[in-house]
Structures are given as structure tokens and as C-alpha cells.
């Protein structure tokens, strides 16, 4: 698998850096809305991605990294809200597994917050910052050289017998 070369900090314009930083800061803007309805955070991140997707690979990388890392946090938060409502509506049966999930979701949110702040600061400096797992996926998706980009024409191949 071949990848495009990644730019160095001095090759990235300030405006591009700021757009990349905005991908992480989006979360703070929607935090108040996202508390009762966690899905709104994700919607805002997706909208931000589609609005800024033409601003170069550096911005795309940071936007995708922020978006992908937000998906599990959103799912965890949604699960917590649903579980809490079910507990309230049914019989106030807040089990130790529920409290464990709540703590785990809190830790995930905190880790996401810290990584997002660091990511925003690095992006503003024109640096790459790779989150575990999500950073590699975002890099792979943005910087991978696709067959159509190599100029070669697609060809049929027999199955590997």
C-alpha cells in the first residue's frame, strides 16, 4: 500500500491549520446540545466534514480523526442515556454493571476530551497527532494512494487458486 507524502509544518498555511483545529473544537461548541442528545455532536462533526472536505488532506485527516473518534463516544453516551431512562421508567434498578458502564463512559469522554485538546493544539501548529486506532484509519483513508490516482488502468485478475 502506497501513501502520499505528508506535509511538514512550514508547508501548511495558517488558515488550513485553523480549519484543522476547528474539527476538534467543534465538539466544545456542541457540548451543551450534546449532553441530552449525544447524537447532535456527531451530526455537527459530519456537517463540518462535508463543509470543509475540499480544504486539503491535512484538514481532512484531522476532521476524520475527530469524527471517527467521536463515533464510539457518541454510541457510549447514547447507550448511557437510554439505559438511564429505562432504569427510571422501569424500577430504579441501578445495578453495579450500570454504574461500571457509567464510569467507563465518563472515562471515555474524558480521554476523548484530552486527546481532542491535544489534537487541536497540534493541528494549530501544523503537526500531525495520531490517536490510537482512529489516527491510523484517518491517515489510511486520506493519504492512501488509490489505484485511479496512480494513473494505471484497472485490470481483471483470476482468483488466487
Amino acid at each position: 500500500m502506497k501513501y502520499h507524502p505528508i506535509p511538514q509544518p512550514d508547508e501548511i498555511e495558517v488558515r488550513v491549520r485553523e480549519d484543522a483545529m476547528g474539527a476538534y473544537l467543534m465538539m466544545f461548541a456542541t457540548a451543551a446540545l450534546g449532553l441530552p442528545l449525544p447524537i447532535l455532536n456527531l451530526v455537527a462533526a459530519i456537517v463540518y466534514y462535508y463543509v470543509n472536505r475540499d480544504k486539503g488532506k491535512f484538514v481532512q485527516f484531522h476532521m476524520l480523526q475527530s469524527l471517527y473518534s467521536q463515533i464510539p463516544v457518541t454510541l457510549l453516551n447514547s447507550g448511557l442515556v437510554a439505559w438511564t431512562i429505562v432504569n427510571f421508567v422501569r424500577d430504579f434498578n441501578f445495578t453495579s454493571i450500570y454504574w461500571g458502564y457509567l464510569i467507563m463512559t465518563g472515562v471515555a469522554g474524558l480521554v476523548y476530551l484530552i486527546f481532542s485538546i491535544v489534537g487541536a493544539v497540534k493541528a494549530r501548529k501544523g503537526l500531525f497527532y495520531y490517536f490510537i486506532f482512529f489516527g491510523k484509519i484517518a491517515y489510511h483513508q486520506v493519504y492512501r494512494i488509490r489505484p485511479e490516482q496512480t494513473g494505471s488502468t484497472p485490470s481483471n485478475q483470476p482468483p488466487g487458486l
Partner: peptide, 29 residues
């Protein structure tokens, strides 16, 4: 690349799975 991503995913799931398990046991005590 793919192996490296899967390893990262395993680490993430392991860490948060352990946090959930540990926190559940702790809040039971």
C-alpha cells in the same frame, strides 16, 4: 497496516472493557 489497526482496536477494547469490569466490581463492594 491492517494488523496494526486491529492491534490498536484490541488494545482500546481491552482497556475500556477492563475499566467497565473493574468499575462494576468496585461499585459492587
Amino acid at each position: 497496516m491492517q494488523q496494526s489497526i486491529l492491534r490498536d482496536l484490541g488494545i482500546l477494547l481491552g482497556i475500556f472493557g477492563l475499566i467497565w469490569l473493574g468499575a462494576s466490581l468496585f461499585s459492587f463492594y
